[in-house]
Computed example of a mutant assay.
Amino acid sequence: MTHFAVSGSGGFLGWHTKAALHETGVTVDAVSLGDEFDAQRAVAAVDGSARAIHIAGVNRANDDEVLAGNVAFAEQFAAALRAADNPPPVVAYANSTQVGNGSVYGEAKARAAETLAAAASDIGAEFVNVSLPNLFGEHGRPFYNAVTATFCHLIANGENPTVENDKELTLLHAQNAADLLTGAARPEAQSDLEETETVTGLLGRLQRYAALYNDGEIPDVDSDFDRDLFNTYRSFTFPAQAPISLTRHADARGSFFEIIRSHGGPGQSSFSTTVPGVTRGDHFHRRKIERFTVLQGRARISLRRLFSDDVVSFEVSGDAPGAVDMPTMWAHNITNVGNDTLYTSFWTNDIFDPQNPDTIPEVV
């Protein structure tokens, strides 16, 4: 089975990289660096790998620690590359666009790149240097990873953040960054994957998403950037905002309720019946938005974040309809736990493409 060696696999970008590779069946062998560095284990992870990706870095410390830490990490990774009997043919590095801006962090990343490039040359590997701008994505760490994560956290918790230093940002979704590092996206495509926005503009977008999503409505996600940014925001509302309550109107004729209000972009609706005891789903999406709505019967909707054992479940019923939106990169399924046939509506924000289904099997 194909495997990649990845440093920093436990961090924000590392998690997204593992999730992206999970779709293709490529396994990840973690390379621990710093105080946890074990030369023998690092060499074993690198040896025979199809690609080695260096993500680990130090960006929140004093200047001396930032410089020494990033250089040391690169030296450890380079040592493992040189010691492998069967080194990888490609070495990819999560560099930064801050290189050359005069900061200590930029200098540290530049030195690390030189170290890795030299090691790649020594082992005859291609060196892929990916200069990453401001990253955003699902499950970012507020007050640490990036301003997007901080804004999402505050807005999802009912706060009203303000902008003290407005400037223009170049933004890249973490799944796109992962694709660049893994080779799924061509380096020359990076500029097409990036979006330029001011800090004020970013905050305004997120606040508009929240105003609609608080009522269960889906904002305009016609552009890939809006879809990815909305998915990022949604990750901060789950599970607190689920299920989404739907207003049921009933009289002698029967009942009526709205399933979804979408403000832009394509969409596809489906309907299923499920007999008692049967489970549907057991898959995850990297970018697709999907909503489950039980129309009749009783169901249990279960979700599990990738690489976690914790399962979140919701009991839903057509008698008190509620919708559950599937967070991206969470495995999910729905089980008929009642005695009668379960009627369920499914909505996705895109039209199903068999060549690019974004529906990856994964048992909850």
Results as ranks from 00 to 15, higher is better:
209 Y>L: 12
318 G>A: 03
269 S>E: 12
31 V>S: 11
164 E>R: 12
120 A>M: 01
73 F>V: 10
342 L>S: 14
160 N>Q: 15
156 A>F: 08
104 V>I: 09
293 T>I: 07
156 A>S: 13
204 G>R: 14
211 A>S: 13
92 A>F: 09
285 H>Y: 04
102 G>L: 10
212 L>D: 14
349 N>W: 06
186 R>I: 12
201 G>A: 13
128 V>I: 11
362 E>W: 15
7 S>M: 04
2 T>M: 11
259 I>L: 10
3 H>C: 08
207 Q>E: 15
332 H>Y: 00
41 R>D: 07
62 N>K: 15
236 F>D: 10
232 T>E: 00
307 F>T: 09
5 A>L: 14
13 L>N: 03
354 P>M: 11
93 Y>N: 06
80 A>K: 01
203 L>N: 02
125 A>W: 05
126 E>Q: 12
83 A>S: 01
325 D>F: 09
168 E>H: 03
277 G>S: 13
223 S>I: 06
100 G>W: 01
215 D>M: 11
358 D>S: 06
354 P>L: 10
233 Y>I: 13
267 G>H: 15
55 I>R: 12
129 N>T: 04
59 N>E: 09
230 F>K: 02
279 T>A: 14
261 R>G: 06
220 D>Y: 10
94 A>W: 00
317 S>W: 12
5 A>F: 12
214 N>P: 04
248 R>P: 05
249 H>M: 12
36 E>A: 15
129 N>E: 01
99 V>P: 03
134 N>M: 10
305 R>A: 01
258 E>P: 02
26 V>I: 05
137 G>A: 11
211 A>D: 14
38 D>A: 05
263 H>I: 06
28 V>A: 02
122 D>Y: 08
50 A>K: 11
30 A>C: 14
93 Y>Q: 02
32 S>E: 13
218 I>L: 10
7 S>T: 04
176 N>E: 10
166 D>A: 10
67 L>C: 07
346 F>K: 04
82 R>K: 12
10 G>R: 15
225 F>L: 08
143 F>N: 12
206 L>T: 01
246 L>E: 12
148 T>V: 11
156 A>N: 04
158 G>P: 05
347 W>F: 11
292 F>W: 13
259 I>H: 04
265 G>E: 10
175 Q>E: 04
221 V>G: 05
237 T>P: 13
231 N>P: 11
97 T>G: 02
89 P>R: 02
264 G>C: 09
225 F>V: 07
92 A>Q: 01
361 P>Y: 09
72 A>G: 03
150 T>N: 08
